[in-house]
Design a protein around this nucleic acid. Sequence first.
RNA 1: CGGGGCGUAGCGCAGUCUGGUAGCGCACUUGACUGGGGGUCAAGUGGCCGGAGGUUCAAAUCCUCUCGUCCCGACCA
Length: 591
Amino acid sequence: MRYSQTFIPTLKETPAEAEVISHRLMLRAGFIRKLTAGVYSYLPFGLAAIRKVEQIVREEMNRAGALELLMPMVQPADLWRETGRYEKYGPELLRFTDRHDRESCLGPTHEEVITDLVRGEVRSYRQLPLNLYQIQSKFRDEIRPRFGLMRGREFIMKDAYSFDVDDEQAGISYQKMYAAYQRIFARCGLQFRAVEADSGSIGGSYSHEFMVLAKTGEDTLAVCQHCDYAANVEKAAIKATADASVEPLLALVKIETPGKRKVEAVCEFLGIKSDKLIKTLIYMVTGGAEGVGTAGENSQQGYALAVLVRGDREVQEVKLKNLLGAAVVELAEDKAVFDLTGVPTGYLGPVGALGLKMKVVADFEIATMRNCVVGAGEKNFHLQNVNLGRDFEVDILADLRQIAEDDPCPHCGGVLGQIEGIEVGHIFKLGTVYSSPMRAVFQDQDGHERPMIMGCYGIGISRIVAAAIEQNHDDNGIVFPVAIAPAQVIILNLGLKDGAITAVAESLYAQLQTQGLTVLLDDRDERPGSKFKDADLLGIPFRVTVGTRLGKDGMIEIRHRRDGLTVDLAPDQAVKYLHDQISAALNQIEG
RNA sequence: CGGGGCGUAGCGCAGUCUGGUAGCGCACUUGACUGGGGGUCAAGUGGCCGGAGGUUCAAAUCCUCUCGUCCCGACCA
């Protein structure tokens, strides 16, 4: 690439719309431009980085035996109805009708399409296993797109789907993908961690997320400091504590607590710690499974549910959702709470009439508490010395709260830490969630018809580039890992009008390309300062400066972007030096 | 979906409170000088002040409505 012939519109100033570092730098470096909310054009240099990532993903998927294909982005609604997801998926699924009034949607993921494809072609166990993948733009109509490529509505994703004859084989497919993912992210030069995860709207039995560790991460991970346990806090299980409090039960007391609604205020007023208080939260649940909602109410319309957790704990809504089999759970608004219960928020409690109005579910921890404080179910009053079993009952006890830093590791009991991460990959064991309703079946050796056992495996290609920048930058710009840099070397010609300097720069450019390196030759008629600044901003790992020094001592300068290490070499040594450096960087990661 | 911010030249912003000739920096064009960390000087180009309606002699500025965009929240009583 010759800089003068390419299109890399760098910006000196940061556009006002960008908040996080990767977004800012990608705009400034001329990688992306926004078309509309959450939708970006990839400019040539940004695309080059994306292509590098794609290539690594391709190589590792192929190595793991997966086969590339490409599926349509526009999908018929009827296909989604077969699995019920046309109704369940929610507003993230962009729906529209075509000129014939056929209902359609833009594919946010492709389980239905791939399952439809495979069920039409695969009849026999002899044709399995099968793992098919594609790299394609996806569209999800996110509530709130943000952070540039980190959470766009349109984004590039690699999605793979495996089909196996039985659970054991499916486990092998899953493990192959797990290993391939480890290699992919390592090769990309990322610091990452695989964690246990919730399977979300995709469904299925278990899954792992691959998280790039970065402060701007949207997910929080619970990581054991002793064993190798790591999980998304949405998922991190908490064991029911066996040892209940042994305090003697005290007599129930009603206390006036005027204006004290918040946990903090109540605790301060009563002189207790928040771990003596039970919060009563009202949730609105939609799409819930039968038997959990209030009798007589249609679960499609939603129902209210009371959730109890200790005062200093937080409800983990994903756990709640999973417990209920619900599509959506959301905290009821103050007005709705009053309309339902006749009690203003802040004074709700499980004692008395609440249980008649709605089901009450509680976190396990509630069962271990004695002589607690709860809202009295009456404005400006709380109850003290409340006890489960004596003063109130709950319908379900379950693991409902979010894991906290003081919780022990669920595996080894060790100390847990919490860190932030950016989800760049997610693998799911699906089982027959799609193959059963869609009748993707085959005949086994005995001639029996059986549903295929599926898995699915996603990687956010465009997000990887953003995550890599979050993890690799400094005050001057991006610091790309060699493997995914849009160019490995940039040559600065600082003497355009000097025949000798230009000749050396051109010669190096040609020779490095012959070595198979990707090179950007800055042949623009710009001042040296601008060239240095742009080279830093773009994050190219190696910078070769050919300037006046050549005439003085015959040397050119090579600078490492990451650590600023500078070496002066004669031009004929530079090619080997760079080739060796880059090979070493790539091989070290590739293993 | 709630709360807040912002829409004025390609980008970053001032001007809006208190109505009266649309500005600054960067970028861009031309020329000269300059040439190893975003240079200097000179001369230029570029704006339906997001859109619609209203008030007024007069609107970027006041009023109403819209559209876009960004941030926060949707984690708690």
